[in-house]
Amino acid sequence: MIDFKKKLISIIIPSYNASDFIDNVLNSVLNQSYLYWECIIINDGSTDGTEEKVNLWIKKDIRFKLVTIRNKGVSSARNEGLKHVRGEYIFFLDSDDLLDKECLNDLIKLTNSDIDIVIGKNASTYGQTKKINKKLRHNKLVNRELSDLDFLELSLREPFDIVVWNKLYSSKFIFSKNLNFIDKILHEDEMWFFETMYYAKNIIFNSKVTYYYNIANYHSITKNYTLKNLKSCIFIINNIYLNYYLKENNAKKKSIIGAYILNLQITTISAFFRFMRFHKCFGFREEGLMMIKKHLKQLNAIEYNQINKKKAKQFEILKLYAIDNPEISYRLIRNLNKNNILKYLENLFLKYKLNLRL
């Protein structure tokens, strides 16, 4: 049998003013049934006693390590953590979440020399607890190695969560591709997810919940959305367009990246108008609309894979109407999944306003 304990896992925890959560998350690490790990806590300039609490854990177990930096944000903290990795595998953990006791053991058992990423199953919780509120999206093809697939295409056909944490990344894979996080933007997970799925050759999904994601401490986009959210999303899409779409020579791969970009544009536009609708916030509405229209005009000539009927319809609406009226395109796309007479009549009215036909 393979001795899994020869495989060191480097756990990276970015931590900013996490005094209320740090003891619980480190306790969930200490209680792992898999013993061969190091835990690198990046104290991102905390001022609430987080550092002092971590130092107590270091005295309990030498596998805990503390690195303190001035406050730069979660991307910089994760990048700093990557500099200190000694393990064969890398695992990201947020300071207000919890691990299942069998998390590392369950994921490490699925590794082999060819696997780039093991993707763990997640569940949301209200508060830092293991009481499950909802199991998050996860691929159905579990406990089997997936290769010879385009994982960007897979993420569009059968969506799974775009998160950094609860994935076991091969250190060789991450460092050979020089992957890191973009500083000073929001939604940094989006770019990391794209790049890891773009480069990965072999991945595997586990079958059990191994990570408990605390949504009670999550500052929801519907509550704290600003122009920086919109600017960050547009920056990420432009980055994918310039550095991957334009440079891709394989026609099929290029069309999938094109579809990925369109999907991100729909997500970005939807988030903007949902916030406007729920919070009746018009302070930056016009500026946001101008940014969206300018972005869409610049990236209008994109070739794309239709993925499936649903995506094809969404992409068609986006390409036809979004430049002229992003809000109406958002509402038409939103209504695609709502088969009732009111939404049918609303769609007719929206198309009448545009004086166009689908």
Rank of each mutant, 00 (worst) to 15 (best):
M1F: 09
D3V: 13
K6E: 13
I11Q: 01
I12E: 01
N17D: 15
N17M: 14
A18V: 00
I22M: 05
W37H: 06
C39K: 00
I41E: 00
E51T: 14
V54D: 00
K59R: 12
D61W: 10
I62E: 11
V67S: 02
T68H: 03
T68F: 07
V74K: 09
R86Y: 05
G87D: 02
E88D: 06
F91T: 05
L93C: 04
D94G: 05
S95Y: 04
D100F: 03
D100Y: 08
E102H: 01
T111Y: 10
Q128I: 03
T129Y: 05
K130Y: 06
N133D: 06
K135P: 04
K140P: 12
L141R: 14
L146C: 00
D148K: 08
F151A: 04
L152I: 13
I162Q: 01
Y169W: 03
S171A: 10
I174H: 02
L179M: 11
I185S: 06
W192C: 06
E195K: 14
A200C: 10
N206A: 10
N206H: 11
H219L: 15
K223A: 04
L227N: 12
L230I: 10
C233N: 07
C233K: 09
Y245H: 09
N250K: 07
Q265E: 11
I266K: 00
T267F: 15
I269V: 15
I269Q: 04
A271C: 11
F272M: 02
G283L: 13
F284H: 14
E286V: 14
M291L: 11
L296Q: 09
Q306K: 13
K309Y: 08
L320D: 07
N325Y: 14
N325S: 11
E327F: 11
S329H: 13
Y330V: 08
R331T: 12
R331D: 07
L332C: 06
L336W: 07
N339M: 05
L345K: 08
N347W: 12
R357F: 07
